[in-house]
Amino acid sequence: MTATTVATTGDGTSRALPEVPRIPFSRIVSVELRKSLDTRAGTLLVAAAVLLTLAPVGWQLTHLTDGVPDFDLWVSSARGGVALFLPVIGILAMTSEWTQRTALTTFTLVSRRGRVLAAKLAAAVLVGVAVMAFVLAVAAAALLVASGLEGTTPVWGDVGSVVGGSLVASALNVTMGAAFGAAIAQSAAAITMFLVAPTLWQVVGTALLGDDAQWLDVFQAFARLSSFELAGHDAQVVTSVLAWVGLPLAFGWVRALRRNVS
């Protein structure tokens, strides 16, 4: 039946454990990547991201009345719609196993659940970064095409910080989405909470606490992180990220490790 040797031990009933190495983490990540793209929902999400990138850029390319925008402006119009989708990638990565009940199969094949969760997070961040890389490429191409059409010299500005900042922002948003997905473990509820809770805090917190609300303003923290300018707000950035990303991720993670899979 197998190539494994049959060994009889003292009780005469045991067989040898096949000498198979532990499943490498990279393999789990690649399976999770494939799982995030091989369903109709996954394909639609990527298609929507592509469309939301191309549509505003296309519109702008055909309406160059105010001259050719700089690279960073192309990037912000290209990523405007996608920004909404990035957290959803993270959320679905963490919730879909439970919603589709495939956790039963996944966790019997990889019994160390922490490895699966880490692989899901890694795969989601990779997808998010890839989507952002596509956005940046489209923005760059649009700048070149527009400059060619108008006969102007493309203005790239500080490409390094725009590119780096965008990639960091996408990774942060996906991770925060994953944290919400892990904590709530139900797709629709997690997406709603993600859209409502931090924004509500921005309004209510600022009204109640004034400037002190910054200590828990995660989007401001993300903006500071992705512009690489903490400007002395290090402690506020750290507390905000811990509260909105670290805490839900840790809570959801621990719960998923212990959860009764059925």
Binding site: S14, P21, R22, D38, T39, A41, R101, A103, L104
Partner: peptide
């Protein structure tokens, strides 16, 4: 084989498990 299931390095190579046939992703 004397090991707790979570301690199996690659469980699928040792024990084939089917606990619920309907726990499959409907979209695949």
């Amino acid at each position: 084989l004397g090991l707790r299931y979570p301690d199996l390095p690659n469980p699928g190579r040792v024990v084939g498990v089917m606990l619920d046939a309907s726990a499959q992703h409907a979209g695949r």
